[in-house]
């Protein structure tokens, strides 16, 4: 799954970045682009809403929001239904 386009839109709306999101690469450092840890709260809430996921405490770190790629990876991990991770028969 790749959610990059939707994540990009959420960042544009909630990230309070100091640059236009369109100018960023998928691996650009979002903190350099003006993302602050408080702004990540808004981004996170929007992501949870959009993808019907919930960020666990352990993922509320600076690293999770370091780049578009990093966010996509986190979303992919959380959006994967847990049943598909469990071996059949358990």
């Amino acid at each position: 799954m790749n959610h990059l386009a939707a994540i990009r839109q959420i960042l544009a709306q909630h990230g309070r970045l100091s640059v236009n999101v369109d100018t960023l690469n998928d691996d650009s450092d979002l903190y350099v682009a003006g993302l602050t840890s408080l702004a990540t709260v808004g981004v996170m809430l929007a992501l949870e809403d959009q993808f019907n996921i919930e960020f666990p405490e352990s993922m509320l770190s600076r690293r999770t929001f370091a780049s578009l790629d990093a966010i996509a990876e986190a979303v992919d991990e959380l959006a994967t239904p847990s049943s598909s991770k469990v071996p059949v028969g358990t």
Partner: peptide, 13 residues
């Protein structure tokens, strides 16, 4: 206000 914002997503473990 900062705490109020962070508490929107923080859960006490």
């Amino acid at each position: 206000k900062h705490n109020a914002t962070m508490l929107l997503v923080h859960k006490e473990g």
